[in-house]
Design a binder for these strands. Structure first.
Lengths: 249, 249
DNA sequence: GATAAATCGATAAAATTTTATCGAACTGAA
DNA sequence: TTCAGTTCGATAAAATTTTATCGATTTATC
């Protein structure tokens, strides 16, 4: 029932948020959930959530009940490719690179990092989180042989173009770039930049706007801010009335 | 001349991309740049870029010449708050946490990480990238005293809600969360989730779509894909005709 | 100088995305 | 069984975002 084409780009970006929330519901033992409940928890519009769910769900929601939690988890996972397995390589086994390598969450999202590359003789031959670290000289060849189309760049900014070129040479068609620099890629190669400092700065900016909007009673003030402002969307989710219960104490 | 209100959310998200590209132009010695050139380099629409630049630029662009590179860098930086300095704390000095701590790019974006917290006695007392790692027990108190409103969560998923609650207790009003879990925050607290695996999965999905669309001639195939498809936007930027020259050797 | 090419700003059209509204369907309680 | 309340799907309106078009302006070239 899921027609790929009906999913807007923005909707796609909301799905991972739903996914995590649904996993939590499942942990709590909930077997079904209504769109309005999800909307409240995530600070989104009811209709929007309902539309998103309708677009991915394999079975329609039941009035007065909602959607099956397990069904939704499966549908969203399927839709986002979490059940596939795409191989990827990582270039740059520095701090960030190794953090990603040791992070176990990628397999659950359908991506398997099969190898890491670096140019530092010190780290070549080591391994991190079960991923071998190889010499960057072997990168293009290995990518070709293993038919890898997905690359991650975690090298310093001044080496990023070089790493990028090696990946392209190896036949990689999609690059996830953590270096804060503009990369040149040939036509047909997808490039997604992950500019972490910029993300944080954006959050700081929004925070600043808020504080400015409601007078600033800094030192030791109690929370006075309310009305999460409906301008939010995307990765950001304010809670409108998330009372439910806290699940950690 | 920059009217904060005229900047759409999507435009805000494009600015960091412009920023990096402009920095590169400055390194190359370019003193001015035209909107269409930026658009080509970033795979965006001319008019869109022109509108974005007009919204932030302090001085109008000159026909036949474009905008001043230095001016734009300053304007965008100002607009994104890169010239401010907002203090932040980080919770969770694991791999990802320490990667962020040792990453020098935050200061340049107007955010200063003043301290990190962890509960592991082994790491408490150490420091990473000049940032002391303190006991998480002291978190709320220190945040209150230092009047910190920005928090970063890099703890494992099953401890994230706990970390979140401590930050809120400390008066933090905006939280950047790396744990792949849905967090409950009170009204008025901004929450931005950074779900790295989900981001990569999204890229993998788009790659899969592409490969499916143009037949799949895997093993050792030359690049045959063309026409970057105009569906792209946001963090993603395909190149339409980036010939210029490569700047790395 | 005059002319051609390219860019700008502005306005408006198109596309996408979000939000509102309606009747129908289902559940649980009287 | 009946009724009240909630949620669903669908349609349509509103808002936002992207793209196209046009005349005006400036620079480079002849």
């Amino acid at each position: 029932m899921h027609k790929d084409t009906t999913l807007s780009l923005q909707a796609l970006r909301r799905l991972p948020g739903y996914y995590n929330y649904l996993l939590e519901l499942r942990r709590r033992g909930e077997s079904s959930v209504a769109a309005p409940a999800i909307a409240r928890a995530m600070g989104l519009n009811e209709v929007q959530v309902r539309k998103d769910l309708a677009a991915v769900s394999s079975s329609p929601g039941k009035p007065r009940v909602g959607f099956g939690v397990a069904d939704l988890i499966d549908s969203i996972g399927r839709c986002l490719g979490y059940h596939n397995s795409e191989d990827a390589v990582l270039v740059g086994a520095g701090r960030m690179g190794r953090a990603l390598l040791s992070y176990g969450g990628f397999e659950a999202h359908g991506v398997r990092i099969v190898a890491a590359f670096d140019e530092d003789e010190q780290v070549i031959g080591q391994s991190e989180g079960d991923h071998p670290i190889l010499s960057v000289k072997r990168l293009p060849d290995i990518c070709r042989r293993m038919n890898i189309h997905l690359g991650i760049i975690t090298v310093p900014a001044d080496r990023a173009q070089e790493a990028c070129d090696l990946l392209v040479e190896g036949g990689v068609l999609a690059i996830w770039n953590f270096a804060p620099i503009h990369l040149q890629v040939p036509q047909g190669v997808l490039l997604q930049n992950e500019n972490l400092p910029a993300q944080l700065a954006l959050l700081a900016r929004r925070l600043g706007e808020r504080i400015a909007k409601f007078g600033e009673e800094s030192a030791g003030a109690e929370e006075d801010l309310r009305t999460p402002s409906p301008e939010d969307q995307g990765e950001t989710e304010p809670q409108k009335a998330p009372r439910e219960e806290f699940h950690h104490g």
